[in-house]
Design a protein around this nucleic acid. Structure first.
Length: 580
DNA sequence: GCCGTTTTCGGCCCGACTGTTTTCAGTCG
């Protein structure tokens, strides 16, 4: 059982314990350990066999035993018993907004409701409203929550959240009386999927700002409308024009409270806990409005001042996941994070030669407009028929066209690449002499996603070990909120890449965003070189690169950890390409 | 269930909002 499965079990145990009315701190201990394990950079199996499980913060004696059982046997009787005595529908009921363990329990105990269908029926017949502690409003909210879950689950991708959030932000900035405006929450931390958009505004007069917010034209529903906090459901469309619904919260504070509120509402929750605990160590109390008890001589103009008061370096939002950033900030060893401006070009992109929407020249023009010094084209290889993979002959023709274009460019270069399929046994889709005709090779898995873990791992490592392979494309094949990653021992893959000097891609397509940020940290520790690629199939998709930079920043990466921050001449030297 | 320079028990971040009550419980972040 791998770490994401173990983490999922622990987090489910936490929910189940809560549903059974257990001590919430006990439940939280499971959830906390689950999160810690989800963020492990190495293999859980290795940690178990090395006997170092209890070095993970939040894992003590009991959890060590339970996790060991889970990893070694793939089962946990404690979990199975808990599940057996919990109607499966309770967990689904918990996902409804406004429903917590107490309400689920009350519905189940008094009306025998233990799944979403019975819940819907009881709401429609009006039985729920008659229940003590419930009412007509609660019943209506449950029905609306059921409809919402039906429509879309409850998370969206980062790019979708940004497309909805950015115009709202611009609108808020232009409202009279508004002083400062920032995005907070997981959007500001650039998590790959988002549950809701948090916006913070400072102003001396909150009411008109709240009113304007709840009257935005794309508001579908007002969920809450208080003095300092309002909550709405917003509709929008992503760049594929698919409809997106997401909750958005607005909070308004006065300008002197703004830095504290910004820090608090940015989270993560775990980072906030650490910040508050640190404030307590100083004899102060941190909340979303102030650092109470701190000397009057300390001024707090922005977030940096809060960190400074606690003798911490400023922690960029992307790092606020309680994965060591507090210690690094205290020890003044936070990384100097990569920025989008550092990117000099990108390597994994498609054209109409395979499944892209634009020609070589159109893609090159778009890259030059972004200020890139080079663009790598890596169209699909021959076996990927669905994507019009290139035959050996078409490879030659495409390369000829690229030579002709390069002859025109003065300070820009098209690199000849391929996104070469990794076949079932780890061999590559072109012979070595064809591979040698490319400036670089991106090797990717596009088929047989359901191979067993050992087979998939060996398959990818064999490809990495091939001397022609420059970089590994989208390491796990996941499509966020759509398709799970294939089973692969990523730590073994990263170790192989470190050994052979093969780069690992951070695929910046917002559906993928893998290598994920957790493993970026591991790759950095192993000395693996990363490369950020948009996997663009159209000119405007080159802009996806920004999301890859977000992942890199969450993964603590610095400029020198990412290959495509190098100058054109350094890239050419590395790839062994000379000017013609 | 975890944890410890206030340490082996008794804490565990803390405030806003909603909906139900009529002073507060539950949920959320």
């Amino acid at each position: 059982m791998d770490k994401s499965e173990v983490a999922a079990v622990l987090e489910e145990i936490a929910l189940l314990l809560e549903l059974h009315g257990e001590n919430p701190f006990r439940a939280n201990a499971y959830a906390k350990a689950g999160r810690a394990i989800a963020q492990l950079e190495t293999n859980i199996a290795d940690i178990v066999s090395a006997g170092t499980l209890d070095q993970i913060p939040g894992v003590g004696e009991t959890l060590r035993e339970k996790i060991t059982t889970l990893v070694t046997t793939g089962k946990l009787p404690f979990f199975d018993d808990l599940k057996a005595k919990t109607p499966p529908g309770w967990l689904q009921m918990l996902r409804l907004p406004g429903m917590g363990p107490k309400k689920v329990k009350a519905l189940s105990d008094s009306l025998g409701i233990d799944d979403l269908e019975k819940l819907k029926a009881a709401c429609e017949s009006g039985d729920v409203a008659k229940l003590k502690g419930f009412g007509a409003k609660t019943q209506k909210n449950i029905l609306e929550g059921l409809a919402f879950i039906d429509q879309m689950g409850n998370r969206v991708r980062l790019d979708q959240a940004m497309m909805i959030a950015e115009p709202v932000l611009a609108f808020m900035r232009n409202l009279p009386g508004v002083q400062r405006v920032e995005l907070c929450g997981s959007v500001r931390r650039r998590k790959e999927t988002i549950k809701d958009i948090d916006i913070l505004v400072s102003s001396d007069d909150a009411a008109p700002i709240m009113d304007a917010f709840v009257k935005l034209p794309n508001v579908q529903k007002v969920i809450g409308h208080g003095e300092t906090k309002s909550s709405v459901m917003l509709a929008g469309a992503d760049h594929h024009a698919s409809r997106v619904l997401i909750n958005a919260d607005l909070r308004v504070v006065n300008d002197s409270q703004f830095p504290f509120a910004l820090n608090y509402f940015t989270g993560s929750k775990e980072h906030n806990v650490r910040m508050r605990q640190r404030a307590i160590d100083y004899g102060w109390k941190l909340n979303e409005y102030e650092l109470a008890g701190a000397p009057k001589s300390l001024l707090f103009n922005d977030e940096t001042d809060i960190y400074k008061a606690l003798d911490l370096d400023y922690v960029p939002p992307e790092l606020r996941e309680d994965t060591g950033e507090m210690d690094a900030a205290a020890g003044h060893v936070l990384p100097d994070l990569l920025t989008l401006k550092d990117i000099t070009g990108v390597f994994h992109n498609h054209t109409t030669w395979s499944d892209g929407a634009a020609s070589l020249e159109q893609m090159a023009d778009a890259a030059r407009a972004l200020g890139y010094r080079y663009l790598g084209i890596a169209d699909h290889s021959r076996s990927l028929g669905v994507a019009h993979g290139l035959s050996v002959e078409r490879v030659k023709n495409q390369q000829g066209e690229m030579d002709a274009l390069n002859a025109k460019y003065k300070d820009f270069r098209l690199f000849k690449g391929t996104e070469c399929d990794i076949l079932a046994d780890g061999s590559l889709d072109y012979d070595d002499d064809v591979l040698a005709s490319f400036d670089y090779v991106v090797a990717s898995v596009h088929t047989l996603f359901n191979q067993p873990l050992e087979e998939m791992t060996a398959r990818i490592i064999r490809a990495i070990e091939h001397p022609a392979v420059t970089m590994l494309g989208h390491a796990t094949g996941r499509l966020l909120l759509r398709r799970d990653a294939y089973k692969v021992d990523l730590d073994a893959v990263l170790q192989a890449a470190a050994r052979t000097g093969t780069m690992i891609e951070i695929n910046a397509n917002p559906y993928r965003l893998d290598l994920d940020w957790v493993h970026c940290k591991r790759a950095k520790a192993l000395g693996v070189m990363l490369v950020i690629n948009p996997d663009a199939h159209a000119p405007d998709e080159l802009a996806y690169t920004r999301f890859g930079v977000d992942v890199a920043r969450r993964g603590w990466l610095e400029k020198q950890n990412v290959f495509n921050t190098r100058s054109l001449s350094d890239v050419m030297k590395y790839l062994g390409v000379s000017f013609v």
